[in-house]
Amino acid sequence: MTDLAERWLDLREFVERTTGLTRRERPAPIVPPANVAGRALMTVIAIMTFLASLTVGAVTLVSDTAGQWQSDISREITVQVMPDDGVDMAAALQTVQTIANGTPGITGASVLDDAATGRLLQPWLGTGLDLDELPVPRLVIIAIDGDSPPDFAAFAAQLTAAVPSALLDDHRAWVSRLVTMARAMVIAGLAVLTLVLVATVLTVIFATRGAMAGNRQIIEVLHFVGARSGFIAGEFQGHFLRLGLFGALGGGLAALFLFALMGLWTRTNQATPEADQISALFGSFSIGWTGYVGVVVLIATIGGLTAFTSRITVMRQLAAIDMISPVEG
């Protein structure tokens, strides 16, 4: 009998004695197939991806809506003519409109008529208002050229000189608050996304260690007889990559379906107060192509992160076995 045959018999006897398997029995796989633990991990990853996708979509939605609001506000300014004793409101409004139309950088000015002013006050004062008997400020809506805006300080001084009760509102305070709110929402969304990814990594680490503990004998035998750590880690990496991708795909598609459903609901129920409120805040509730791309990137990231985390965990566990085994021997 050759040395090679003797080594093979010794190796087979060692494997059978260590694992309790005979050569006629089917050997257990390195990584367990889809089981309860695998389905549970896939479900957890799907839930994490769903929450992360909602965060990405919400941040995209708020950012786009805030940009639209900022663009709309920056294209218009208003002039309030305050009622005062001895002020001819009609003449004052006409003067403001004339000055605005003659100022460079202003593309148009329109006086908010009595009917429009009454509709603005209707939720608080009801219908049938007589604005001549109420000390209500009147508004002049002024459209400005976004590429070449006017000198607001000079325009305000000219208005004050002609109509002392006129007040210019260029909406800078609103724009500043809007930008601050949008940035705070983006930071909060990134923080939530980071926490979700960290929780996913920890879940994969525990799942990988559990899978290794359930197949410890097989892994140790393969490792001691010469199987490279990269080969064993690759088996776990492929297994957890499939779990991660399937779970992330399910969670991401569920989030995209929810956004599409909300957009469809707002478009088909535009006459209701609820849909009008949502449309006023978020427009058509569409996350746009940037949101969809972000969710797709998130799905791929979670799948790759799951596989990478599993591989690193296996490599560290095998390195720990190498450090312990000489002491035990």
Rank of each mutant, 00 (worst) to 15 (best):
L167I: 13
V201H: 06
W8R: 15
D72G: 07
G67H: 05
A300Y: 03
D85P: 02
S279F: 04
H171G: 03
I144S: 03
T18C: 05
G234A: 10
D3T: 10
V296E: 10
A40Y: 03
W289H: 04
D84T: 06
D88R: 05
V62A: 15
A5V: 12
A233S: 11
A233D: 04
A275M: 11
A37R: 11
I218V: 14
T203D: 04
H239R: 14
F282E: 11
V293S: 09
T194C: 13
T290L: 14
I73H: 00
A157F: 01
L129S: 01
Q70H: 06
G118A: 13
P137N: 07
R7Y: 02
A28P: 02
I232P: 01
G126H: 07
P164A: 10
V296A: 15
R23M: 14
A92S: 15
G118K: 12
I30C: 06
F257P: 00
V327K: 08
T309Y: 00
Q94W: 01
D10T: 12
A156T: 08
A254C: 12
L168H: 05
L202G: 08
F240T: 07
L243K: 02
L190A: 14
A319M: 11
P273D: 09
V196A: 09
E25C: 04
A66H: 04
A184G: 08
L21R: 14
A52H: 02
G263H: 09
V15H: 13
Q80G: 05
G283A: 08
L245A: 15
A320V: 08
L129V: 05
R17W: 00
G67A: 13
A115I: 10
I47R: 03
T301L: 15
Q317P: 00
H239I: 00
H239V: 04
T194M: 13
S71D: 13
F231Q: 08
A227N: 04
T200M: 13
D84G: 12
